[in-house]
């Protein structure tokens, strides 16, 4: 009898507990749905960016022909009668600055990566790496100030023909800005090359330099290339440095001493001015933004492709 009573009461307790939990149960099912919605926000952001750019760019192309946009050699949007919308001068400006930045950042970044991964002791690495990463955390407007008030005057002392606004100074400063990116990502790639391979090469009598150049560098190549491509993408999208130090004259020339305008700087120039909503100039920033977006998207896909396709598995 006693046993039955006890069983009964426990069953009661369990069913009571279950009833109480039922309210919590639906909550338990609601949570994943709520979390899924937050996860969808990031997807919606991408869709929002793509749709925004596509719709406003289409509006732009109803007023300016796509052929003119892609082939005309002049970017002169602020004239009512003689407006000319050829993206090439803006693309040239962006590519000039990016090219200079890469010329500065790739040798220095990879050399730093080799030093940190192959030569430096753990202790030195622990001190230097965070300091390098501070360089990456400095706001770009600060670099813009640095380019205009420090780098440009120095360059003008060396090269008297240099204009106040030019491609060289922001290019160099963007290069400095992306050094930590290349150094850090390449160093990660090199550090993940297993030590046994290094020891094999050292055992055959290689110097550290030979190990670094003939063994580690080729093994880590995919990671290094990916880091460079990501840095290129970053340089293409960089805005404030080129706005402050690059000028606002879009020109179709490879001369780096003259004032330029990049795609990003044009968007800033229009945003700052009193351009009315709905004018052709207003829609032009979306067309330029679309071009910029496509450039960086292709770069990001290349980086992902390279690091997946050519990765050496150990």
């Amino acid at each position: 009898m006693g046993d039955e009573n006890v069983n009964h009461s426990i069953q009661d307790l369990i069913s009571k507990k279950f009833k109480k939990k039922r309210a919590g149960f639906s909550f338990e099912r609601l949570v994943p749905i709520l979390l899924f919605i937050t996860a969808l926000i990031s997807v919606l952001t991408t869709i929002g960016i793509v749709l925004t750019l596509i719709f406003e760019t289409i509006t732009f192309f109803t007023r300016v022909s796509i052929v003119e946009f892609l082939t005309a050699k002049k970017w002169f949007p602020f004239s009512e009668t003689h407006g000319s919308y050829g993206i090439l001068p803006l693309v040239t400006g962006t590519l000039k600055v990016t090219g200079i930045a890469i010329l500065v950042a790739v040798p220095i970044g990879i050399a730093s990566a080799i030093y940190l991964s192959e030569y430096a002791t753990e202790k030195t690495k622990k001190i230097i790496k965070p300091i390098l990463e501070v360089l990456a955390g400095i706001p770009t407007i600060v670099y813009g100030y640095f380019a205009l008030t420090f780098v440009t005057p120095i360059l003008r002392n060396v090269m008297p023909g240099l204009e106040i606004f030019n491609a060289l100074s922001p290019g160099i400063v963007i290069g400095i800005m992306i050094i930590p990116m290349i150094a850090s990502l390449s160093e990660d790639a090199m550090s993940s090359v297993p030590n046994s391979i290094r020891e094999g090469a050292l055992g055959l009598g290689s110097t550290k330099f030979e190990v670094a150049f003939k063994v580690v560098l080729p093994s880590a190549l995919s990671g290094i290339i990916a880091s460079i491509v990501l840095a290129v993408s970053r340089a293409i999208g960089e805005t404030m440095i080129v706005t402050v130090a690059g000028g606002s004259t879009p020109t179709l020339t490879w001369d780096v001493t003259r004032s330029i305008q990049t795609m990003t700087a044009y968007i800033v120039q229009v945003s700052q001015g009193d351009v009315g909503y709905g004018t052709t100039v207003y829609y032009s920033i979306y067309a330029v933004g679309m071009t910029l977006f496509l450039f960086t998207l292709i770069m990001n896909f290349i980086a992902q492709f390279v690091s997946r396709r050519f990765r050496e598995e150990y």
């Binding site: 996860a39 990031s42 997807v43 952001t45 991408t46 929002g48 960016i49 925004t52 750019l53 406003e56 990501l230 993408s233 293409i236 999208g237 960089e238 805005t239 990003t264 968007i267 800033v268 945003s271 920033i285 979306y286 933004g289 910029l292 977006f293 960086t296 998207l297 770069m299 990001n300 980086a303 992902q304």
Partner: peptide, 22 residues
């Protein structure tokens, strides 16, 4: 979703400005 997040990280900040404006 995962690929989308890593691509979103590579979009230039000024393009986010265009999204916010619109």
């Amino acid at each position: 979703i995962q690929i989308n997040i890593s691509n979103l990280a590579g979009v230039p900040s000024i393009v986010f400005g265009l999204l916010g404006l619109t």
